[in-house]
Computed example of a mutant assay.
Amino acid sequence: MTYREVLDNKSIAVSTSESPDMPGLGLQAEHLRDAMTEIARHTLALGAKLVYGGDLRTDGFSNLLFELAARYRRDTINPRKLGVTNYLAWPVHIRQEPEQLDQASADLEGVAELRLLDINGKDLDLKERHYLKTHQPTEPEWALGLSSMRHKMLAETDARIILGGRVDKFMGDMPGIAEEALYSLQAKQPLYVMGGFGGCARDVAEEIGVLEPNSVREWPGRDKFNSFKGKKLNNGLSAEENRVLASTPHVDQAIVLILRGLTKANLGSQGGMTA
């Protein structure tokens, strides 16, 4: 007999960045990091794998997830079964020297999985990366590389959580959190919109009818959400629970709702005792 946690073998994508609304809400970057920490801590403890598409900045969210993955380190030599997978899109890693990527991968061995992708979203081996010239990516490379990574993440995850998110100074065709949320909606993947930090996540909640519009700001691609107004988020939560999740400033309340939804949504068989 072996024990399985409720979210064993489930991959949860997390999308976040600082929100332009945070100062007006009395929030700082530390509050967003605290929220990410709580999301990661609870989902990792329940056996889930967290999937993030970020760079390797020292103060970035990727490193925060790596620290938590080390705390909840899993007894496995299979990198695909580690607690965190971080995708490096083509325009992100092509700017870095291969030796830097080698060192980052070595530092994360046994803790988190680092996956490099080519411009079309296919896995790229670190050894292959040594044969590619480091360069500053063009705008078309940014757009295609990021979109390809997001399609890859969609195909390999069971649900997505979004919170915060900038709506300007982004790379690609539209804000990153918006594009990732759009792909989840199109695929009917369970989506959890944590809107208490404002930003792109709050805008998405308003655009799909979870919340009443407050002030409509324009950003590329916002109109693409119109067709999802009033549609189910397939996330195991009621309309009222989704409204609370999209509006509450209380992280603890949001975590309870996300975990409730993840355990009720159609993510496959639930945890328990198996022979």
Rank of each mutant, 00 (worst) to 15 (best):
Thr37Ser: 13
Glu38Met: 12
Ala40Trp: 07
His42Trp: 11
His42Cys: 14
Thr43Asn: 04
Leu44Met: 15
Leu44Asn: 07
Gly47Leu: 06
Gly47Cys: 05
Gly47Ile: 00
Ala48Cys: 02
Ala48Met: 02
Ala48Tyr: 00
Ala48Trp: 02
Lys49Ala: 14
Lys49Gln: 15
Leu50Trp: 00
Leu50Gln: 03
Val51Glu: 05
Tyr52Pro: 06
Tyr52Ser: 06
Gly54Trp: 04
Asp55Cys: 05
Leu56Met: 07
Arg57Leu: 11
Thr58Pro: 01
Gly60Leu: 09
Phe61Val: 12
Phe61Pro: 11
Ser62Tyr: 11
Ser62Val: 08
Asn63Ser: 06
Asn63Val: 00
Asn63Lys: 11
Leu65Pro: 01
Phe66Leu: 08
Glu67Trp: 00
Leu68Ile: 15
Leu68Asp: 04
Ala70Trp: 12
Arg71Cys: 10
Arg71Ser: 09
Arg71Phe: 14
Tyr72Ser: 03
Tyr72Met: 06
Tyr72Lys: 04
Arg73Gln: 13
Asp75Phe: 10
Ile77Lys: 15
Pro79Gly: 01
Pro79Gln: 03
Arg80Asp: 14
Gly83Thr: 00
Val84Ser: 04
Val84Arg: 05
Val84Lys: 04
Thr85Cys: 07
Tyr87Gly: 06
Tyr87Glu: 06
Leu88Phe: 11
Ala89Glu: 08
Ala89Ile: 13
Trp90Asp: 07
Trp90Thr: 01
Trp90Glu: 04
Pro91His: 01
Val92Met: 07
His93Ile: 02
Arg95Val: 03
Gln96Asn: 11
Glu97Phe: 04
Glu97Pro: 02
Glu97Ile: 00
Glu97Ser: 05
Pro98Gly: 15
Glu99Met: 10
Gln100Glu: 10
Gln100Leu: 11
Leu101Arg: 06
Leu101Met: 06
Asp102Gln: 13
Gln103Ser: 03
Ala104Thr: 00
Ala104Lys: 04
Ala104Phe: 03
Ala104Pro: 01
Ser105Asn: 10
Ala106Met: 09
Leu108Gly: 01
Gly110Val: 11
Gly110Gln: 09
Val111Asp: 02
Val111Arg: 12
Arg115Ile: 15
Leu117Ser: 12
Ile119Lys: 00
Ile119Phe: 02
Gly121Ile: 00
Leu124Val: 11
Asp125Tyr: 10
Asp125Ser: 15
Leu126Ala: 07
His130Asp: 15
Tyr131Phe: 14
Leu132Ile: 14
Leu132Tyr: 13
Thr134Leu: 05
Thr134Pro: 07
Thr134Tyr: 13
Thr138Asp: 03
Pro140Met: 13
Pro140Leu: 12
Glu141Gln: 13
Trp142Ala: 08
Trp142Met: 12
Ala143Asn: 11
Ala143Leu: 08
Leu144Asp: 02
Gly145Trp: 00
Leu146Phe: 02
Leu146Ser: 06
Ser147Ile: 01
Ser147Asp: 14
Ser148Glu: 00
Met149His: 09
Arg150Thr: 06
His151Trp: 08
His151Tyr: 13
Met153Asn: 02
Met153Phe: 02
Met153Cys: 01
Leu154Asp: 00
Leu154Trp: 03
Ala155Thr: 02
Ala155Trp: 10
Ala155Asp: 10
Glu156Ala: 10
Thr157His: 06
Asp158Tyr: 05
Asp158Ser: 10
Ala159Glu: 01
Ala159Leu: 01
Ala159Asn: 01
Arg160Gly: 00
Ile161Asp: 04
Ile162Pro: 14
Gly164Val: 10
Gly164His: 09
Gly164Pro: 07
Val167Phe: 15
Lys169Thr: 05
Lys169Gly: 08
Phe170Tyr: 14
Phe170Asp: 11
Gly172Ala: 05
Gly172Trp: 03
Met174Gln: 13
Met174Lys: 13
Pro175Trp: 09
